[in-house]
């Protein structure tokens, strides 16, 4: 059975991403707009070029999200296997408890332990980012009807095949929802990372706030907000498609 990848849900975020990306290379436009909004300000743009700031943020988010997804899904799969079942309760409790903590607080708590700079920031973001992925992996796998798993095993699937061909596909929509939450939180918290010396889009906001340059703050805020919304839009589209798929699988 071949399915065409539905492109419609991705249209809006893609257009937004193209406009966003293009505008980064036209600082004159930003200067004009911000200058018009703040006619009294001398400095309306942050000194570092926008593509660099976005690149730094994307790098931090990509690295920490990749780690979050890997660890979160790995742990979620581990505790739902027979050999990891003993850890199910405690890991579930930890992920529930952990999500009670506010992400910014966890991040700032981790900085003193891990240190300042790019790598510590990535690790600090990962600590919290794991939680939504883990939580949803456990919930998603748990929501697969036992009868389906049973019949897969009955037909001779190995445990690994059952996981890859049955459990994960059926859980995918829920897991992706967790990844989406994790990535959005990572974008949000990474801006705070600017004060830990990690650079990125938080830098103009903080610099603007510190030096009373509202235009610079607004520049950073707009760039950050747009980036968060675009990433959220993309992952929302992926989630939408996955929801459709697992509904089809359910019906099958």
């Amino acid at each position: 059975m071949t399915r065409t990848w539905p492109w419609r849900p991705f249209l809006a975020p893609t257009i937004a991403a193209i406009v966003y990306g293009a505008s980064l290379f036209v600082p004159g436009l930003w200067e004009a707009v911000l200058g018009a909004l703040f006619p009294d300000e001398v400095r309306v743009l942050y000194h570092a070029p926008m593509p660099l700031l976005v690149w730094q943020t994307l790098l931090i988010v990509a690295a920490s999200s990749a780690l979050s997804i890997g660890i979160g899904m790995g742990l979620g799969v581990f505790v739902t296997r027979p050999f990891g079942a003993d850890f199910f309760d405690v890991v579930t409790d930890l992920s529930n408890l952990g999500q009670t903590f506010p992400p910014i607080a966890v991040f700032t708590l981790a900085v003193p332990l891990l240190g300042f700079g790019f790598r510590p920031t990535v690790f600090a973001l990962t600590i919290y980012g794991v939680l939504p992925v883990l939580h949803n992996t456990i919930a998603g796998i748990g929501s697969v009807p036992p009868a389906i798993v049973e019949s897969a095993r009955g037909m001779g699937f190995t445990p690994g095949q059952t996981l890859r061909k049955v459990e994960l596909p059926l859980a995918s929509a829920v897991i992706i929802a967790g990844i989406r939450v994790s990535v959005v939180i990572n974008v949000s918290t990474s801006t705070i990372g600017a004060i830990a010396g990690a650079g990125g889009l938080g830098a103009p906001i903080i610099s603007g706030l510190a030096n009373s340059d509202p235009a610079v703050t607004l520049q950073g805020a707009l760039l950050t907000t747009a980036l968060a919304l675009i990433l959220d839009g993309y992952l929302g589209a992926v989630q939408h498609v996955a929801e459709g798929r697992s509904a089809q699988l359910d019906a099958a």
Partner: peptide
């Protein structure tokens, strides 16, 4: 949901202008 997606620092940055 959109409010929730806006990063914290950015939210403050966005509020500063209008409030000022």
């Amino acid at each position: 949901n959109i409010f929730q997606t806006v990063p914290g620092l950015a939210m403050i940055g966005l509020l500063i202008g209008p409030l000022a």
